[in-house]
């Protein structure tokens, strides 16, 4: 290992004196071998939150419901308020200059702009 790397103590040492159980004892075959963890979705599923009383707060039921407010119309390119909407590309735009720009955009860019506000066409 290079001297400057050692000096910067960049690399975490494999043996640490204060640990009761070292990493290499815990995972003798190496850390990447096999998956020792569950995704958050799996954790939630295993927890069976639907069986919990609904008036008790838990991770699932504190999540806010989707907003019921009408969304603000914001120009997709400039971020200004957008009074107009282009029916061909479905993009919102603020003024004529932006409209020109929108019409000159290739389709994949249009889709990427729309994806930013979850309005893109998703093929399944």
């Amino acid at each position: 290992m290079e001297r400057e790397v050692v000096e910067a103590e960049l690399v975490l040492p494999t043996h640490l004196n204060f640990k009761k159980l070292q990493m290499y004892e815990k995972y003798p075959k190496g850390q990447s071998r096999g998956r020792h963890w569950k995704h958050l979705k799996q954790i939630i599923q295993a927890e069976n939150f639907q069986n919990y009383p609904p008036d008790e707060p838990n991770y699932v039921n504190i999540e806010s419901p989707p907003s019921m407010h009408p969304p603000k119309r914001i120009c997709d390119i400039t971020g200004y308020e957008a009074p107009y909407y282009d029916p061909r590309t479905n993009m919102r735009y603020a003024n004529a200059e932006v409209f020109k720009l929108i019409r000159s955009l290739p389709n994949d860019y249009v889709q990427r702009y729309l994806a930013l506000r979850n309005a893109a066409v998703v093929l399944k």
Partner: peptide
């Protein structure tokens, strides 16, 4: 939510160290 505890362990190692 912490879900990968091996990574958490590396982080705690480093923090305590």
């Amino acid at each position: 939510v912490v879900f990968q505890f091996e990574i958490m362990e590396y982080i705690l190692d480093f923090g305590f160290d």
